[in-house]
């Protein structure tokens, strides 16, 4: 019997506590977010309004409207997007067996970004813009699928390469749009939108993004056990009754639904899909059954907090993509070092 067999993994033993604590963290973050803002509203009043909302009529006063029509849909959207992006990232890292993978790798974000930028250039806004972004996100995924399909099969490596190619293509198209855009008008709008923001969140936009994100989220969570199997090699997976290729594409489509919907309403928000799953693994381990719910809760809380900072720290709206990068990059560096220090220390 080997010495290391008895060494239990050095992670938080209280796994069973992790999920309830994360849920509490999310609830706290959302409550904080709803009571914080540039417009001075007494926090207790805000809570009162929230509790009374389902029974009251349409919001009348400025306070009510700010809490219920500006903050509430925005916080919900941030939470939903954070959960969706984190779960999408965790699922992709599982399927690709690579911890450096993020939703960008499938080319969906650049595709959706192109759709949104095109809408801005053409002066299209609202539901049509969301639709355009979502459509191009899916088109990018389709292009990746067709490009990577060689001899009736798609290998993981070819999918990553195809994703790079399609992502680069749409990135170039976005640059082209910026080139022809009016420097006075649509160009700054496109640039700002690309940096990501929930500033335009309304109940209507939440309604446009929620179905895609929620559907992707729910189904990916239902696949959490299956994701353990999808990380096995082909022979092992097949012998266990799994159809790896088909199921991988199901995961990709769900990721596309989440990312496409999110980019369509709020531009490119990066780092969540990359960093949150790592933090989740440090808390609950690699088993996707625990990881996906943990990532969802952690991602939601993180994005709610960061978005609240983006809209309250200064009178300007700080672009969200900038904040997630500024916070995400060092956090990722720390996680990476801890993670590998653990592994190499054994």
């Amino acid at each position: 019997m080997s010495q290391t067999a008895l060494a239990l993994p050095r992670r938080w033993q209280g796994e069973a506590l992790a999920l309830p604590l994360l849920a509490a963290l999310l609830a706290g973050a959302m409550l904080l977010a709803l009571t914080a803002g540039r417009f001075p509203i007494d926090p207790l009043r805000a809570v009162e309004m929230l509790l009374a909302a389902p029974f009251a009529g349409a919001p009348e006063t400025m306070e009510e409207r700010i809490v219920l029509l500006v903050r509430l849909p925005r916080v919900l959207l941030a939470a939903l997007a954070g959960a969706g992006l984190a779960v999408a990232g965790a699922a992709l890292q599982g399927v690709f067996r690579n911890p450096l993978v993020a939703p960008q790798v499938l080319g969906i974000s650049p595709g959706a970004a192109f759709g949104g930028a095109l809408a801005i250039l053409l002066g299209i806004s609202g539901a049509l813009m969301v639709g355009l972004a979502f459509a191009f996100g899916l088109a990018a995924l389709l292009a990746v699928g067709l490009l990577a399909r060689i001899g009736g099969r798609t290998e993981i490596v070819t999918v990553i390469l195809a994703g790079l190619v399609i992502g680069a293509l749409f990135g170039a198209l976005v640059s082209l749009l910026q080139f022809v855009a009016d420097p006075n008008g649509s160009l700054p709008a496109i640039v700002y939108w690309l940096m990501g923001s929930f500033a335009s969140a309304t109940w209507e936009r939440l309604g446009l993004a929620a179905p895609g994100i929620a559907a992707g989220l729910v189904l990916l969570l239902a696949l959490r056990f299956r994701l353990n199997l999808l990380s096995l090699d082909e022979a092992e997976a097949r012998s266990l009754g799994v159809r790896p290729e088909r199921e991988r594409w199901l995961v990709f489509c769900l990721v596309a639904a989440i990312v496409g919907s999110q980019v369509a309403v709020s531009g490119i928000v990066g780092w969540i899909g990359l960093v949150i799953p790592h933090a989740g693994r440090l808390l609950v381990g690699h088993d996707h059954r625990a990881l996906l719910p943990a990532a969802a809760l952690l991602g939601a809380a993180f994005l709610v907090i960061v978005d609240t900072l983006a809209r309250t720290v200064t009178s300007a709206e700080i672009p969200l993509g900038v904040l997630t990068a500024i916070v995400g990059a060092p956090v990722f560096a720390v996680l990476l070092r801890r993670h590998y220090r653990e592994r190499f220390a054994s």
Partner: peptide, 18 residues
């Protein structure tokens, strides 16, 4: 009205209300 802001900067509706 946009005190504390520099340049042409994105703001949210809540800030305008404030």
């Amino acid at each position: 009205a946009a005190q504390g802001l520099r340049g042409f900067t994105p703001v949210n509706a809540e800030q305008i209300a404030a």
